[in-house]
């Protein structure tokens, strides 16, 4: 099968909405992000302002962020939404925990347990955001939600490659999204990986296809591996080594690495790209925002074309994942 390529991308983050805001924010030396001391949020993200009044009355933040990211991508790359074989693959942690919990709370506090708002029932289901993105853009190909936390976006990229390889889609819109809500914050603060540090939100989407004409990067390999009690650094070394072998690239050739929350050895001289230093820990969006940062950095770096980048992520105590890309530089 031919190598999957990324032909377009979009991002919604503490830098703002859209690729231009992301490019500008990432290139700026410091600051440029919204939030409190220990949180980062997408600035001014009012769902109705961003997406309009239609169909947004009962929409939750996760779906709003997803639709904003997908709309930016489709806007940039209108061809992706046409045809019957465009798929959408969304990485998540567990959907909108906020919506699920708010719904249960409304049942427990109502005079009768079923005096609840029927319009928000689907918000509590994990595939809500992906399904709504399909409706909005008439995406009738496979529509898949991958729940993997911090490795979800890289797993979505891997899944996208399989859909293309099996001929189940011609183009896949793949990405990861996370919302900053009280429910998410509680879950993060009571988990080992989110106990400390800055918690952020956002998302990024990528058009993935096998048509290399407008390629920004070749997706040479994506791997994810279970920890199953193994040491995290050791597992990541195995994961990266396997992915590089699959890509046919020696470690010494790696130009840039986006290690995310992981410790990746093997690349002493590589440029380190770390959007999380500014955007915070963005959960299921993290791998997607790291990938966006790699593409953004490559686009403004002379000589990046043809070079190799590695993106890595860890879901603490559970799974490690990485992707190996060959950058095509500015198109």
């Amino acid at each position: 099968m031919s190598t999957p390529v990324i032909t377009a991308w979009s991002a919604v983050s503490a830098f703002g909405i859209g690729r231009a805001a992301f490019d500008t924010g990432l290139a700026a030396p410091v600051g440029g992000v919204a939030g409190n001391a220990d949180t980062r949020e997408v600035p001014g993200f009012d769902i109705r302002d961003v997406l309009g009044p239609r169909g947004t009355r009962s929409m939750d933040r996760l779906t709003g962020l997803t639709l904003a990211a997908v709309a930016e991508l489709v806007g940039e790359h209108a061809a992706v939404a046409e045809g019957t074989d465009t798929a959408l693959v969304l990485g998540t942690t567990t959907g909108s925990a906020q919506s699920a919990m708010a719904f249960t709370r409304s049942s427990l506090e109502a005079e009768r347990p079923f005096y609840v708002d029927p319009a928000v029932v689907p918000n509590g289901v994990m595939n809500r955001a992906a399904g709504q993105a399909a409706i909005r853009h008439r995406l009738i190909g496979p529509n898949t939600t991958i729940a993997g936390g911090r490795v979800a976006a890289l797993q979505a990229l891997q899944y996208a490659g399989r859909l293309l390889g099996a001929g189940r889609a011609g183009t896949v819109l793949a990405g990861g999204v996370e919302e900053l809500t009280p429910a998410r914050l509680w879950l993060e603060r009571n988990s080992a990986q989110g106990r400390h540090g800055v918690i952020g939100e956002g998302g990024a989407f990528f058009a993935v296809t096998t048509d290399a004409r407008h390629a920004l990067a070749d997706v040479l390999a994506v791997r994810s591996l279970a920890l199953a009690g193994d040491d995290q650094e050791k597992a990541m070394r195995r994961c990266v080594t396997a992915a590089l072998a699959r890509a046919g690239v020696p470690a010494a050739e790696v130009w840039a690495v986006a290690p995310g929350n992981s410790t990746v050895e093997l690349f002493d001289d590589a440029v380190v790209i770390a959007p999380e230093d500014r955007l915070g820990e963005t959960g299921a969006a993290s791998g997607a925002l790291q990938l966006a940062a790699v593409l953004s950095t490559a686009a403004r770096t002379p000589g990046a074309a043809g070079r190799i980048a590695v993106i890595a992520s860890v879901e603490h105590g559970a799974v490690v994942a990485c992707a190996v890309l060959r950058l095509r530089g500015r198109s």
Binding site: I146, L225, A226
Partner: peptide, 18 residues
């Protein structure tokens, strides 16, 4: 599942398509 079976060479994926 991977942890219970002691499988470190597997790719664990959860698919949330309802």
């Amino acid at each position: 599942v991977a942890a219970e079976l002691g499988l470190t060479n597997v790719e664990p994926v959860t698919i949330g398509t309802a």
